[in-house]
Design a binder for these strands. Structure first.
Length: 266
DNA sequence: CCCCATGTTCGACA
DNA sequence: GTGTCGAACATGGG
Protein backbone atom coordinates (compact mmCIF):
# COMPACT_ATOMS: atom_id res chain seq x y z
CA UNK A 1 0.00 0.00 0.00
CA UNK A 2 2.79 2.40 -0.62
CA UNK A 3 1.48 5.94 -0.88
CA UNK A 4 2.94 8.99 0.83
CA UNK A 5 2.46 7.94 4.45
CA UNK A 6 3.17 4.26 3.95
CA UNK A 7 6.41 5.17 2.20
CA UNK A 8 7.45 7.27 5.19
CA UNK A 9 6.64 4.32 7.42
CA UNK A 10 8.71 1.91 5.32
CA UNK A 11 11.62 4.34 5.16
CA UNK A 12 11.99 4.06 8.91
CA UNK A 13 11.99 0.29 8.84
CA UNK A 14 15.67 0.36 7.89
CA UNK A 15 16.57 2.66 10.80
CA UNK A 16 18.01 -0.22 12.86
CA UNK A 17 20.75 -0.31 10.22
CA UNK A 18 21.82 3.33 10.67
CA UNK A 19 25.55 3.77 11.32
CA UNK A 20 26.17 0.12 10.54
CA UNK A 21 28.45 -1.23 7.86
CA UNK A 22 27.12 -3.43 5.09
CA UNK A 23 29.11 -6.64 5.31
CA UNK A 24 27.33 -8.61 2.64
CA UNK A 25 24.90 -7.81 -0.16
CA UNK A 26 22.42 -10.30 -1.53
CA UNK A 27 20.49 -9.57 -4.71
CA UNK A 28 18.56 -11.37 -7.42
CA UNK A 29 20.73 -10.49 -10.36
CA UNK A 30 18.05 -10.83 -13.01
CA UNK A 31 15.35 -8.96 -11.19
CA UNK A 32 13.40 -6.34 -13.07
CA UNK A 33 13.60 -3.98 -10.06
CA UNK A 34 17.16 -3.01 -11.04
CA UNK A 35 15.87 -1.70 -14.38
CA UNK A 36 18.88 -2.27 -16.57
CA UNK A 37 21.55 -1.35 -14.04
CA UNK A 38 24.24 -3.95 -13.53
CA UNK A 39 23.45 -5.79 -10.29
CA UNK A 40 27.09 -6.68 -9.65
CA UNK A 41 27.94 -2.96 -9.68
CA UNK A 42 25.30 -2.35 -7.03
CA UNK A 43 26.55 -5.30 -5.02
CA UNK A 44 30.12 -4.05 -5.05
CA UNK A 45 29.04 -0.44 -4.60
CA UNK A 46 27.26 -1.07 -1.30
CA UNK A 47 29.84 -3.45 0.15
CA UNK A 48 31.58 -2.07 3.26
CA UNK A 49 29.54 1.13 3.14
CA UNK A 50 27.84 2.49 6.23
CA UNK A 51 24.20 3.61 6.20
CA UNK A 52 24.08 7.26 7.22
CA UNK A 53 20.65 8.68 6.63
CA UNK A 54 17.41 8.26 4.70
CA UNK A 55 14.83 10.50 3.07
CA UNK A 56 11.28 10.10 1.78
CA UNK A 57 9.60 12.32 -0.78
CA UNK A 58 6.22 11.37 -2.14
CA UNK A 59 6.53 7.73 -3.14
CA UNK A 60 10.33 7.93 -3.47
CA UNK A 61 12.97 7.03 -0.91
CA UNK A 62 16.67 7.78 -0.83
CA UNK A 63 19.25 6.05 1.38
CA UNK A 64 22.61 7.71 1.91
CA UNK A 65 25.73 5.66 2.54
CA UNK A 66 29.17 6.79 3.55
CA UNK A 67 30.68 7.91 1.41
CA UNK A 68 29.23 9.21 -1.86
CA UNK A 69 26.84 6.30 -2.31
CA UNK A 70 23.10 6.62 -2.79
CA UNK A 71 20.36 4.05 -3.07
CA UNK A 72 16.96 5.04 -4.45
CA UNK A 73 13.97 2.86 -3.65
CA UNK A 74 10.47 2.94 -5.13
CA UNK A 75 8.04 0.38 -3.76
CA UNK A 76 5.79 0.12 -6.81
CA UNK A 77 2.55 -1.66 -6.01
CA UNK A 78 3.69 -4.40 -3.63
CA UNK A 79 7.14 -3.41 -2.41
CA UNK A 80 8.12 -3.20 1.25
CA UNK A 81 11.14 -2.66 3.45
CA UNK A 82 11.83 -4.33 6.76
CA UNK A 83 14.65 -5.28 9.08
CA UNK A 84 15.24 -8.93 9.92
CA UNK A 85 17.78 -10.88 11.93
CA UNK A 86 21.22 -11.31 10.40
CA UNK A 87 20.53 -14.97 9.59
CA UNK A 88 17.64 -13.97 7.30
CA UNK A 89 17.32 -16.29 4.31
CA UNK A 90 16.33 -14.44 1.13
CA UNK A 91 13.04 -15.51 -0.40
CA UNK A 92 12.02 -15.46 -4.04
CA UNK A 93 10.68 -11.91 -3.61
CA UNK A 94 13.71 -10.64 -1.62
CA UNK A 95 15.39 -8.69 -4.41
CA UNK A 96 17.91 -6.90 -2.21
CA UNK A 97 19.20 -7.74 1.27
CA UNK A 98 21.90 -5.72 3.03
CA UNK A 99 23.52 -7.63 5.86
CA UNK A 100 25.18 -5.84 8.76
CA UNK A 101 26.59 -7.42 11.88
CA UNK A 102 23.27 -7.08 13.70
CA UNK A 103 20.62 -6.88 11.00
CA UNK A 104 19.42 -7.76 7.55
CA UNK A 105 17.87 -4.82 5.68
CA UNK A 106 15.40 -6.33 3.24
CA UNK A 107 13.61 -5.06 0.12
CA UNK A 108 10.85 -7.35 -1.07
CA UNK A 109 8.44 -6.97 -3.97
CA UNK A 110 6.56 -9.90 -5.42
CA UNK A 111 5.14 -8.06 -8.44
CA UNK A 112 8.41 -6.40 -9.50
CA UNK A 113 6.85 -2.98 -10.12
CA UNK A 114 9.24 -1.45 -7.60
CA UNK A 115 12.56 0.05 -8.55
CA UNK A 116 16.05 0.19 -7.08
CA UNK A 117 18.60 2.69 -8.31
CA UNK A 118 22.18 3.03 -7.18
CA UNK A 119 24.57 5.89 -7.74
CA UNK A 120 27.97 7.13 -6.62
CA UNK A 121 28.24 10.90 -6.37
CA UNK A 122 29.13 13.59 -3.88
CA UNK A 123 25.76 15.27 -4.04
CA UNK A 124 22.30 13.78 -4.01
CA UNK A 125 21.35 12.26 -7.38
CA UNK A 126 19.76 14.54 -9.94
CA UNK A 127 16.61 12.44 -10.15
CA UNK A 128 16.11 13.11 -6.45
CA UNK A 129 16.81 16.85 -6.42
CA UNK A 130 14.52 17.39 -9.39
CA UNK A 131 11.47 15.80 -7.77
CA UNK A 132 8.43 18.11 -7.65
CA UNK A 133 7.88 20.12 -4.44
CA UNK A 134 6.19 18.34 -1.58
CA UNK A 135 2.47 18.95 -1.06
CA UNK A 136 3.23 20.00 2.51
CA UNK A 137 5.84 22.55 1.47
CA UNK A 138 5.15 26.27 1.13
CA UNK A 139 5.52 26.15 -2.61
CA UNK A 140 2.40 24.01 -2.99
CA UNK A 141 -0.01 26.93 -3.25
CA UNK A 142 -3.64 27.22 -4.23
CA UNK A 143 -2.53 29.17 -7.29
CA UNK A 144 -0.34 26.27 -8.42
CA UNK A 145 -3.25 23.91 -7.89
CA UNK A 146 -5.57 26.13 -9.91
CA UNK A 147 -3.07 26.37 -12.75
CA UNK A 148 -2.61 22.62 -12.85
CA UNK A 149 -6.36 21.98 -12.90
CA UNK A 150 -6.56 24.31 -15.88
CA UNK A 151 -3.74 22.55 -17.68
CA UNK A 152 -5.49 19.20 -17.12
CA UNK A 153 -8.95 20.64 -17.63
CA UNK A 154 -10.40 17.73 -19.59
CA UNK A 155 -9.24 14.92 -17.31
CA UNK A 156 -11.37 13.59 -14.47
CA UNK A 157 -10.22 15.00 -11.14
CA UNK A 158 -9.59 11.46 -9.93
CA UNK A 159 -6.96 10.93 -12.63
CA UNK A 160 -5.46 14.39 -12.06
CA UNK A 161 -4.86 13.81 -8.35
CA UNK A 162 -2.82 10.72 -9.24
CA UNK A 163 -0.33 12.75 -11.29
CA UNK A 164 2.95 12.64 -9.39
CA UNK A 165 4.36 15.70 -11.18
CA UNK A 166 1.95 17.83 -9.12
CA UNK A 167 0.83 15.63 -6.22
CA UNK A 168 3.85 13.55 -5.22
CA UNK A 169 2.80 10.73 -2.92
CA UNK A 170 -0.93 10.79 -3.66
CA UNK A 171 -2.13 7.33 -4.68
CA UNK A 172 -5.43 5.62 -5.29
CA UNK A 173 -6.89 5.64 -1.81
CA UNK A 174 -5.67 9.17 -0.99
CA UNK A 175 -7.19 10.57 -4.18
CA UNK A 176 -10.55 9.03 -3.28
CA UNK A 177 -10.30 10.31 0.29
CA UNK A 178 -9.56 13.83 -0.94
CA UNK A 179 -12.46 13.93 -3.40
CA UNK A 180 -14.86 12.48 -0.87
CA UNK A 181 -13.97 15.06 1.78
CA UNK A 182 -14.10 17.85 -0.78
CA UNK A 183 -17.55 16.82 -2.00
CA UNK A 184 -16.38 16.49 -5.59
CA UNK A 185 -17.54 13.65 -7.84
CA UNK A 186 -14.45 11.82 -9.14
CA UNK A 187 -15.47 12.08 -12.82
CA UNK A 188 -15.72 15.88 -12.65
CA UNK A 189 -13.40 17.38 -15.28
CA UNK A 190 -10.61 19.27 -13.52
CA UNK A 191 -11.41 22.49 -15.37
CA UNK A 192 -15.06 22.48 -14.25
CA UNK A 193 -14.46 22.73 -10.52
CA UNK A 194 -15.75 26.11 -9.33
CA UNK A 195 -13.28 28.43 -7.53
CA UNK A 196 -14.78 27.99 -4.07
CA UNK A 197 -14.50 24.23 -4.47
CA UNK A 198 -10.90 24.56 -5.55
CA UNK A 199 -10.22 26.25 -2.23
CA UNK A 200 -11.86 23.36 -0.39
CA UNK A 201 -9.95 20.85 -2.49
CA UNK A 202 -6.68 22.60 -1.72
CA UNK A 203 -7.31 22.38 2.00
CA UNK A 204 -8.28 18.71 1.87
CA UNK A 205 -5.25 17.71 -0.20
CA UNK A 206 -2.98 19.09 2.49
CA UNK A 207 -5.13 17.80 5.33
CA UNK A 208 -5.21 14.22 4.06
CA UNK A 209 -1.45 14.21 3.46
CA UNK A 210 -0.68 15.62 6.91
CA UNK A 211 -3.08 13.38 8.83
CA UNK A 212 -1.98 10.28 6.95
CA UNK A 213 1.64 11.04 7.82
CA UNK A 214 0.71 11.59 11.47
CA UNK A 215 -1.22 8.34 11.74
CA UNK A 216 0.41 5.85 9.35
CA UNK A 217 3.80 7.49 8.84
CA UNK A 218 4.51 7.24 12.56
CA UNK A 219 3.67 3.64 13.40
CA UNK A 220 1.06 2.37 10.96
CA UNK A 221 -1.82 3.46 13.18
CA UNK A 222 -5.47 3.03 12.24
CA UNK A 223 -7.52 5.79 10.67
CA UNK A 224 -10.72 6.86 12.47
CA UNK A 225 -13.97 5.42 11.11
CA UNK A 226 -14.87 8.94 10.01
CA UNK A 227 -12.46 8.39 7.09
CA UNK A 228 -13.56 6.84 3.82
CA UNK A 229 -10.45 4.66 4.09
CA UNK A 230 -12.04 2.21 6.52
CA UNK A 231 -15.08 1.64 4.34
CA UNK A 232 -13.82 1.69 0.78
CA UNK A 233 -12.24 -1.70 0.28
CA UNK A 234 -15.21 -4.01 -0.11
CA UNK A 235 -18.39 -3.97 -2.13
CA UNK A 236 -21.30 -2.74 -0.01
CA UNK A 237 -19.29 -0.43 2.27
CA UNK A 238 -21.25 2.36 3.97
CA UNK A 239 -20.45 6.07 3.58
CA UNK A 240 -19.79 7.46 7.08
CA UNK A 241 -21.38 10.77 6.06
CA UNK A 242 -24.57 9.78 4.25
CA UNK A 243 -25.05 6.27 5.61
CA UNK A 244 -25.65 5.11 2.06
CA UNK A 245 -23.84 2.37 0.18
CA UNK A 246 -20.64 3.53 -1.49
CA UNK A 247 -20.18 3.24 -5.24
CA UNK A 248 -17.15 1.46 -6.64
CA UNK A 249 -16.25 1.78 -10.29
CA UNK A 250 -13.30 2.23 -12.59
CA UNK A 251 -12.46 5.90 -13.17
CA UNK A 252 -9.24 7.18 -14.65
CA UNK A 253 -8.19 3.58 -15.10
CA UNK A 254 -8.35 2.81 -11.39
CA UNK A 255 -10.92 1.38 -9.01
CA UNK A 256 -12.58 4.40 -7.45
CA UNK A 257 -14.79 4.53 -4.38
CA UNK A 258 -17.13 7.44 -3.82
CA UNK A 259 -20.41 8.49 -2.26
CA UNK A 260 -22.82 9.85 -4.91
CA UNK A 261 -25.03 11.79 -2.51
CA UNK A 262 -22.17 13.78 -0.97
CA UNK A 263 -19.98 14.25 -4.07
CA UNK A 264 -21.27 16.76 -6.59
CA UNK A 265 -20.63 16.47 -10.33
CA UNK A 266 -19.74 19.82 -11.85
C1' DC B 1 -10.64 -19.76 -17.61
C1' DC B 2 -12.13 -14.97 -15.72
C1' DC B 3 -11.29 -10.59 -13.05
C1' DC B 4 -8.99 -8.04 -9.50
C1' DA B 5 -4.91 -5.57 -7.07
C1' DT B 6 -2.50 1.02 -2.70
C1' DG B 7 1.97 2.25 -9.60
C1' DT B 8 4.43 3.87 -13.65
C1' DT B 9 5.45 4.01 -18.50
C1' DC B 10 4.73 3.77 -23.30
C1' DG B 11 2.28 3.88 -27.68
C1' DA B 12 -1.82 5.28 -30.22
C1' DC B 13 -4.74 8.79 -31.34
C1' DA B 14 -7.02 13.35 -31.56
C1' DG C 1 4.24 19.43 -29.37
C1' DT C 2 0.21 18.56 -26.13
C1' DG C 3 -3.29 16.08 -23.72
C1' DT C 4 -5.89 11.80 -22.84
C1' DC C 5 -6.63 6.98 -22.59
C1' DG C 6 -5.75 2.10 -22.31
C1' DA C 7 -2.50 -1.64 -22.43
C1' DA C 8 1.51 -3.65 -20.58
C1' DC C 9 4.54 -4.85 -16.99
C1' DA C 10 4.72 -9.76 -13.18
C1' DT C 11 2.51 -12.25 -9.70
C1' DG C 12 -0.93 -14.18 -6.80
C1' DG C 13 -5.73 -14.44 -4.88
C1' DG C 14 -10.67 -15.13 -5.36
Amino acid sequence: MPELAEVEYYRKQWNPGLSQTIEKVHLHSHSRVFRGQTPSDIQRGLQEKSLQKSFAHGKQMLFQFKSCTWLGVHLGMTGKLFTAKPDFIPQKQSHLVLYTEKNALVFEDFRHFGKISWEESREKPLWWTSLPPSILSQSFTQEKLQAFLKKRKNSPIKAVLLMQEQFPGVGNWMADEINWRSGIHPTTRAGKIPPDKVAVLYGEIKEVCQKALDIVGEDWGDFPDSWLFNHRWREGGICPRSGEILTREKIGGRTTCYSPSVQELF
